[in-house]
């Protein structure tokens, strides 16, 4: 049985990463921006796992566990921050959160 070539994984993950970056840059809802960031992290995870299976060494898979753990911690803090701002301003739209200007 032939396995899927590594290039397919890399192209898919590069595509996911680009979607994530675009999402961060053009979306205006803080939650959606945050989801796009998670997509970037997951594309990196996919790359790591693909390389790990291609190279036949486990370092990449171990790294993915670290990334997932850290992403969970980051999500906890990030959602708490977004809730805090929603309580004060009743919006999570980035364009309306603009006290600071130069």
């Amino acid at each position: 049985m032939n396995s899927i070539p590594i290039e397919y994984y890399l192209i898919l993950s590069a595509f996911m990463f680009s979607i994530g970056v675009t999402g961060v840059l053009i979306r205006r809802n803080a939650i959606v921006v945050f989801m796009s960031i998670e997509l970037m992290l997951n594309s990196a995870n996919l790359t790591l796992v693909a390389f790990s299976s291609y190279l036949g060494n486990p370092i990449g898979q171990v790294f993915v566990f670290f990334v997932m753990t850290v992403a969970a911690a980051e999500a906890a803090v990030g959602l708490a921050i977004i809730i805090a701002i929603f309580r004060n301003k009743l919006t999570v739209n980035i364009d309306e959160i603009n006290i600071f200007k130069w």
């Binding site: 890399l10 970037m40 992290l41 990196a44 995870n45 790591l48 291609y54 190279l55 790294f63 990334v67």
Partner: peptide
């Protein structure tokens, strides 16, 4: 940074 690390690891 994570995506960069993934590529370097590969």
């Amino acid at each position: 940074i994570v995506y960069g690390i993934a590529l370097i690891y590969g």
